[in-house]
Design a protein around this nucleic acid. Structure first.
Length: 649
RNA sequence: GCCGGAGUAGCUCAGGGGUAGAGCGCAUCCUUGGUAAGGAUGAGGUCACGAGUUCAAUUCUCGUCUUCGGCUCCA
C-alpha cells in the first residue's frame, strides 16, 4: 500500500501502482467523470500513469487551467492526427495550448496548402477519431531512437527539438495511428473530446524567429460538451460587437483614410471631444501632483536623436529624416518626446531645490510600424502620448515612482478598469547589445522599480528582455474584447538619457550632480487607451466622459424653439447637449438616440414648454419622470461630480 | 516585413463572363406626433487601382494598394 496525500492534507491508502482515475473514482463519481489530469508531487502527469510511491496529488478538471490545458493539448494531437491523414508527409513543429484553445505549427508537403475551406473536413475527421476513444499511451524512448524515428519521417523540426532534449527525459504519446513527441500529460483517451472548432489559420515563423522558415499554424478550440462550444461561439460574436473599430465607426469617433495614409487616425468631432475630456481629467490630476505642461515641436534635428540613442537604435526602422533645402540639415519626426524635454530641462540651470521637475505634454509622436502590425487605434503610426518626464534627485526617485503608480490607479479607478496585469520589464542579461548605458546604471534602475513595486504591494509579473533600450519599466496591461493584451500605462526609470544629455543640477554641496529621469504615460497613448476604453464600455462611456451627455427630443416641430432654449441653458451649464429636431415621431427619435448610447434623453412637448420642464429618460432604463430644467442641470452635474469625487481635488 | 483571407452605394451585405441588387442611411414631399422603427417618391456605384486573357471582365489571371486574422516587431 502507498499513501496519497490530497490537497486538503488528508491522507488515503491505495494499492501500489494506483492511477489518477482510480483515485478520482474512490473520491466521488462526479470527480471521476470530470477529472482530466493529475499533479503528482507538483508535476503534471497522465491520469493513467501508475503511481508507485507515496505522493501528494492534486486532481484537475475543466474548471482549472491545468485540466483545460491537458484537454487542449490532447486536442492538438488529435488535430495533428487528422492533418496527417489528409496531408501525409506533413512535418510537425510544436502544438501548444493558448488562452482560448490550442494550435499546431505544421510544415505541409511541397505544393500543398491548407485553407479554411479544409476546416470542415478536418473537424469531421477529428470528431471521428475522437469517437473511436483511442487510448493515448505514453512511452519513454532513448534520444537515439527518437532521432532515428523522426529521421525516418523526414521530420527535421522534431529532430531539432529532440536534439535539445536530455536523454532519459524523452517521451512519446501514441493514439491510433499517430505518434508524437511530447512531454505530456494527456487525456486517457480521445473520447473526452466532444466538440471541435478550428478557428483560424496563420503563418508563424519556426521557433518565433523571423529568420526561420514560415510554417502554417492552425488554431482550434475543443470542449467536453457541445453546449460549451455553442456558448463560446456566442461569446465570440458578442466580443466582436464590442470591437472598437466597429463601435468607433458607429459612433462617429474616428476614421481612417487611404488618402491620408495607413495607420494615421483621423479623429472626428465626437472622438475629439472624448479625448479632450480625458485630457482635462488627467491634467487636473497632474496639477495636483505638481506637473507643469509644456509644448514641443513635432520634429527635431536628427542630431538630437543621435544624442539620445534613438537614431542608432531605430533610425533604419523609422520615418526617414526630412531634409531642408540647405544642405546637411536633417530633421526627424519625433518618435518620443523625451529628447525635447531634456532640452527644456537644460534651458536653465537647476538647483537641487528645483527638483523634482515634472514636465508633462500630450505629445504626438510618429513611428514607422510594420504594415502588418497596424490595428485600429491600438497600433498606429501617429499617436499622442500623455507623456511626462520627471527629473529628480536619486534620493527622490522611489517616492516619485510610487506617486506615478498612484496616478495610474486613479485613472484605472475612474474608468473601472479592474482586470489589469502589472509587468516589470527588465533587460535581457544575455543581450547587452540591445541596451545603452552601464550595467551599474541598469542595476540601480531595476532595483528602484522592483523596490517601489514591493513597497506599493503590487502583484507584478517580471519579464526579462522587455525593457526599453534606455531603461527598465513597469507596464500596465489590459485586455481587449477578444482577450488580446495591450500595454497601456508605462513608467520607466532612466539613468542613461541624463548622462547622454549631460543633465545636471547643483547640489547642496555646491557640486554638479546628475538627475534621474522617470518617463511615464499613464494612459500610454490616447489612441490605444480610447480603443481599450471603447471595448470595455461597449461605447457606453461614463457620463463625465461621454461626448454627448444629453439629447433633447422635441415631440414635434412646434417645440423646437423650446428645445433650443433648454439646449442653450444646459450647454451654458457645461452639460454637453444636442437636439434631435428631425421630422420624426417621438418613438423613432427615442429609438435612434438610445442606440447612439446618449445617457440622457430629454423629451419636450406642450406640457414641458408650458412648465419649463423636461421629461427625462435614462439610456437603457426608460422614463424617469419630469424635472424642472434647472433641477435637471443640477442633477446631472451632481452625477458627474459624484463619479469623479475623491479622484482628485 | 512574412503567411493566409477579404475589397460591390455613406454603412451592413447579396450577386455573378453580356446595361448592378437589398436593407439601413441620405434628399424631397405628405404627416405634427407623448416614451424603442409613420408613409410616398427619389438621388447615389469606373463593382479598390493597374495590366493581361476574351467578341465582351465588376466576375477569370497576375501585380499594386488597403483591410482582416496570425507571426515577427513595438522607443
Amino acid at each position: 500500500m502507498i499513501q496519497i496525500t490530497l490537497p486538503d492534507k488528508s491522507v488515503r491508502e491505495y494499492p501500489e501502482a494506483v492511477n489518477g482515475i482510480e483515485i478520482a473514482k474512490s473520491i466521488s463519481h462526479g470527480l471521476a467523470k470530470n477529472v482530466l489530469s493529475i499533479e503528482v508531487n507538483g508535476q503534471a502527469w497522465d491520469l493513467t500513469r501508475k503511481i508507485t510511491k507515496d505522493a501528494s496529488i492534486k486532481l484537475h478538471t475543466w474548471e482549472d487551467n491545468i485540466g483545460k490545458e491537458t484537454f487542449w493539448h490532447s486536442s492538438a494531437h488529435l488535430l495533428a492526427e487528422a492533418i496527417e491523414f489528409f496531408f501525409p508527409g506533413t512535418k510537425f513543429g510544436i502544438g501548444p495550448t493558448v488562452d482560448n484553445g490550442f494550435y499546431y505549427d505544421i510544415d505541409l508537403p511541397e505544393g500543398k496548402v491548407i485553407s479554411e475551406k479544409d476546416f470542415q473536413k478536418i473537424e469531421k475527421k477529428m470528431l471521428e477519431l475522437a469517437r473511436q476513444k483511442n487510448n493515448i499511451v505514453r512511452s519513454e524512448i532513448s534520444k537515439v531512437d527518437a532521432l532515428t524515428m523522426f529521421a525516418e519521417k523526414n521530420d527535421e523540426l522534431k529532430q531539432e527539438l529532440i536534439g535539445e532534449l536530455e536523454d532519459g527525459t524523452i517521451s512519446l504519446y501514441n493514439q491510433g495511428n499517430f505518434t508524437d513527441l511530447c512531454r505530456g500529460p494527456h487525456l486517457p483517451n480521445t473520447g473526452y473530446i466532444k466538440a471541435i472548432k478550428l478557428t483560424a489559420i496563420a503563418g508563424a515563423y519556426w521557433r518565433g524567429d523571423e529568420k526561420n522558415k514560415m510554417l502554417t499554424r492552425v488554431y482550434g478550440i475543443t470542449f467536453p460538451k457541445q453546449k460549451m462550444l455553442e456558448e463560446y461561439l456566442v461569446m465570440l460574436e458578442e466580443a466582436k460587437k464590442r470591437d472598437h473599430r466597429k463601435i468607433g465607426k458607429e459612433m462617429d469617433l474616428f476614421t481612417f483614410s487611404e488618402a491620408v495614409g495607413q495607420g494615421l487616425p483621423l479623429w472626428l468631432p465626437k472622438g475629439a471631444q472624448l479625448r479632450e475630456q480625458l485630457e482635462i481629467f488627467l491634467k487636473k490630476v497632474q496639477k495636483k501632483y505638481g506637473y507643469d505642461q509644456v509644448i514641443t515641436p513635432h520634429i527635431g534635428d536628427v542630431n538630437l536623436y543621435k544624442t539620445s540613442g534613438h537614431y542608432e537604435k531605430y533610425g533604419k526602422d523609422s520615418f526617414q529624416p526630412i531634409s531642408t533645402p540647405a544642405e546637411g540639415e536633417e530633421y526627424l519626426l519625433k518618435p518620443m518626446n523625451c529628447p525635447h524635454h531634456c532640452e527644456i530641462y537644460k534651458s536653465r540651470p537647476k538647483s537641487y531645490k528645483d527638483l523634482p521637475v515634472r514636465m508633462a505634454e500630450f505629445g504626438t509622436v510618429y513611428r514607422y510600424e510594420q504594415s502588418g502590425e497596424l490595428h485600429g487605434l491600438t497600433r498606429v503610426r501617429s499617436f499622442t502620448q500623455d507623456d511626462a518626464h520627471i527629473f529628480c534627485r536619486p534620493d527622490q526617485l522611489k517616492d516619485e515612482f510610487k506617486k506615478v503608480i498612484d496616478i495610474v490607479f486613479i485613472i484605472f479607478k475612474a474608468l473601472s478598469f479592474e482586470n489589469y496585469v502589472t509587468q516589470i520589464s527588465l533587460r535581457d542579461p544575455e543581450k547587452p547589445e540591445k541596451y545603452i548605458g552601464s550595467p551599474e546604471n541598469w542595476d540601480k534602475a531595476e532595483k528602484a522599480i522592483v523596490e517601489a513595486c514591493e513597497e506599493k504591494g503590487l502583484n507584478t509579473i517580471t519579464e526579462l528582455g522587455e525593457a526599453a533600450f534606455y531603461g527598465p519599466k513597469l507596464d500596465f496591461m489590459i485586455k481587449d474584447a477578444l482577450g488580446r493584451s495591450w500595454q497601456l500605462g508605462t513608467i520607466q526609470v532612466d539613468y542613461n538619457l541624463p548622462e547622454r544629455f549631460k543633465l545636471e543640477y547643483i547640489g547642496a554641496d555646491d557640486n554638479r550632480h546628475q538627475p534621474v529621469m522617470i518617463h511615464r504615460a499613464p494612459f500610454g497613448s490616447m489612441e490605444r487607451f480610447v480603443a481599450v476604453l471603447i471595448e470595455h464600455t461597449a461605447g457606453k462611456f461614463p457620463l463625465w466622459l461621454t461626448p454627448e451627455q444629453a439629447v433633447i427630443l422635441p415631440i414635434s416641430e412646434k417645440y423646437n424653439d423650446y428645445a433650443k432654449k433648454v439646449s442653450d441653458f444646459l450647454n451654458i451649464s457645461d452639460i454637453r447637449t444636442v437636439i434631435d429636431d428631425r421630422n420624426e415621431k417621438i418613438g423613432r427619435k427615442i429609438r435612434d438616440n438610445e442606440l447612439k448610447r446618449i445617457p440622457y434623453l430629454l423629451i419636450v412637448g406642450e406640457k414641458e414648454a408650458e412648465t419649463e420642464t423636461v421629461s427625462v429618460r435614462r439610456q437603457g432604463e426608460g422614463d424617469k419622470g419630469v424635472m424642472e430644467k434647472s433641477a435637471f442641470a443640477n442633477f446631472i452635474l451632481k452625477e458627474v461630480k459624484d463619479q469623479l469625487s475623491g479622484l482628485y481635488n
